[in-house]
Design a protein around this nucleic acid. Sequence first.
DNA 1: CTTAATTTGTTATAATATAACGTTTGTTAT
DNA 2: ATAACAAACGTTATATTATAACAAATTAAG
Lengths: 134, 134
Amino acid sequence: MTQKQEQLSKNQQIVLNIIEKAKGPLKAYSILYNVQKRGIKAPLQVYRALEKLIEIGKIHKIESKNAFIACKNSDCEISKATAFSICNNCEHVKEIKNTKLSKYLSNFEDNSGMKYKKYNLEFFGLCRDCKLKQ
Amino acid sequence: MTQKQEQLSKNQQIVLNIIEKAKGPLKAYSILYNVQKRGIKAPLQVYRALEKLIEIGKIHKIESKNAFIACKNSDCEISKATAFSICNNCEHVKEIKNTKLSKYLSNFEDNSGMKYKKYNLEFFGLCRDCKLKQ
DNA sequence: CTTAATTTGTTATAATATAACGTTTGTTAT
DNA sequence: ATAACAAACGTTATATTATAACAAATTAAG
């Protein structure tokens, strides 16, 4: 077994647990509220944990929502290529796991010849449930 | 001539002018500072103009930077499909105009069958200048 | 004109995020 | 084991980004 086990610190583990248990993306201050019973008292403690967790690819930030979600893409150890679908109605967010898409985007080059190491894509629309309810 | 000329209000015009003259994306409070000589005094006046300008597709928000940039894509009247390249070093931001890319993304469907009306894509890397300087 | 809708001006405040500082804990090399 | 260094922690204060609420002024449409 060559699986490199990332050793998380206490606060990082607490914050990650909350995010992984959540049904959708969580906002920083909502995380803070949730972890106060576990000893984390200040925003900065949360933000520092979030920063680290993003860095190692355990979570992602949904930029359009300023919210944080656990990575479901087990094979993106350090996640530089992210894509999400976001329902405009119920706000449900799902990480998109699509090899064709990620290959397409990872290999994309614009006319300036600039090659990209990282991208974030956010799709917006209505999820199936919300489409039916309309 | 069926060109629908959007009639902007005074504040909207002021804010748009600043953004169009800028070399890169501007932050809301930087815009505020820049337009105070023209009578706009409060953040809300700026944010309201920004909201409208985004709605009609004159500007876009760069989510990862909380900054606003003029739309260079003259044919996306109401811009629901945006893509940007962002240099991690010099922070230069450029709107990507690439028909293949926008077609690919506009037609993208994930396995849930969800179809998207809107997307925002932000690529990160080193622009040519910064790559050479490294 | 007058009614409705939009935009404005203003004050206050909410929500999101980081600076700066010193302390503690964990890792690595001797 | 311990010195030296790096990473994480705790804490206070503050910076940055964004919206609520309300009344007045302006503009568009019938």
